[in-house]
Design a binder for these strands. Sequence first.
DNA 1: CAGTATCCGGCTTGATACTG
DNA 2: CAGTATCAAGCCGGATACTG
Lengths: 121, 121
Amino acid sequence: MVSIMFEHNDKTFPCATSLTMSFIGGKWKAVILMYLISKKRRYSELHQGMKSISERTLSLHLKEMERDGLVKRKVYSKKPPLKVEYELTEFGRTLIPVLNAIYDWGTAVGEAENKVKKVSI
Amino acid sequence: MVSIMFEHNDKTFPCATSLTMSFIGGKWKAVILMYLISKKRRYSELHQGMKSISERTLSLHLKEMERDGLVKRKVYSKKPPLKVEYELTEFGRTLIPVLNAIYDWGTAVGEAENKVKKVSI
DNA sequence: CAGTATCCGGCTTGATACTG
DNA sequence: CAGTATCAAGCCGGATACTG
């Protein structure tokens, strides 16, 4: 019998589903990618948008997704204050249908089950 | 200014995307759900299908998804050997488009980037 | 058969302070 | 501004043995 396995970053995944989850899984990656669908954004924009993410975590995820080829990092100045922008690569854009499906489902559930809560900030 | 937050299982999520990921995120949940799309399955079927999952992890995830209303557990015998089957609930079935999008993307990436490896078992 | 109990290592995330 | 360094905590997942 023959099973098909997937390899990515020296890890092995038993199916296409878990391979995808290695790209967008975890607590934050999909959220960061959602922010980048509509336009490129600066580090601080991302950080403010997702207030509850720590700088360390944001930085680590951006680097990992850059290494995975999903995100492109562009530096616009040589000396501080730096200006850096992140945007989706062409490969990263192939994830848009997946990300939209995830977002739409969450939205529908939020409305249907009264799990939405409005918080003023 | 007003932000919309989502609550689920006593946790707060800052957007629809992270709400969805709380249902299908992690290493295994989406994979288990994929197995249940086509038909109901017994515990041992699931365990064999995903060889690398531990009994403990499979058990915990099934319970959590049962509590989340995605999966239904049916017992067919009172005394050992037990027969138990798991299937998607109607609510769980609303996730199928999301799960398929995830699966399809992983499949496409596996083919496009030569990340597919065939392992005989 | 379908799990649970126990134990444990490691990965993930967070808080804070600091640097080019 | 855009991160990195450091330290710490918690959760996730795995191995194994045991139970109704």
